[in-house]
Amino acid sequence: MVMEKVVYQRPESLTDTVTHYCPGCTHGVAHRLVAEVLDEMGIREKTIGVAPVGCSVFAYNYFNHDYVEAAHGRAPAMATGIKRVRPQNTVYTYQGDGDLASIGMAEIVHAAIRGENITVIFINNAIYGMTGGQMAPTTLAGMKTTSSPLGRDVELTGYPVKMAEMLSTIDGAGYIVRRSLHNPVNIRKAKKAIRKAFETQERGLGFAMVELLSSCPTNWKITPQEALDFIENSMLPVYPLGDYKVHPELAGLRV
């Protein structure tokens, strides 16, 4: 008789709800990785998520744990409120680039400054997805969007903002890294980073953020595979992957 084992199955921390994400959108990969990490750490039942406004506004429908839905950009403030009155819970925000790097810039920076013991999953896909593909603060120079139809003119609209680099200068930050979701090797690395970002919180080492370069095939107007190639060829040079700040107590942590 042939015996077989399950090598991979849908994590318990995801509900059975089909996501509204477009085919090939790597939001789903990021969701899956967070869910896998919560499963592996055994913390699903004490975790409270904070959803943003943006494509992942309905994240709370897809995760099988307590969730609240924030106002646009305010997720880090909301997470602060939750974590301060219930420090025994694991609290994370899941935010896109419009939410975190535009309207919510003050909230994310000050959550880091206060060294809030929260975990932030930051999806950088260089565009506003939910509203239909407008320019984001993370949009690449020259990139065409519905609100930069001739390509982003950095002289008029500024340069792409590098959140990981910026937040890594803040003393209250315990773990700040950038990863990418464009191929299996990088997805594995992204998962380890997410694990470390939650471990940062469990150890009380301060603010943790994983910036994930993510695809938006629909608004980039290319196929899902081409979108992954775009991350590799066009986003990586602007947004270098790496560990921008790692608390010394995490340095030796193997996950």
């Binding site: 305010r74 403030a77 409120g81």
Partner: peptide, 14 residues
């Protein structure tokens, strides 16, 4: 908080 905007959202979360 860093602003009243943040303060009320902390209140909201809590």
């Amino acid at each position: 908080a860093e602003s009243e905007v943040a303060a009320i959202n902390m209140v909201y979360g809590a």
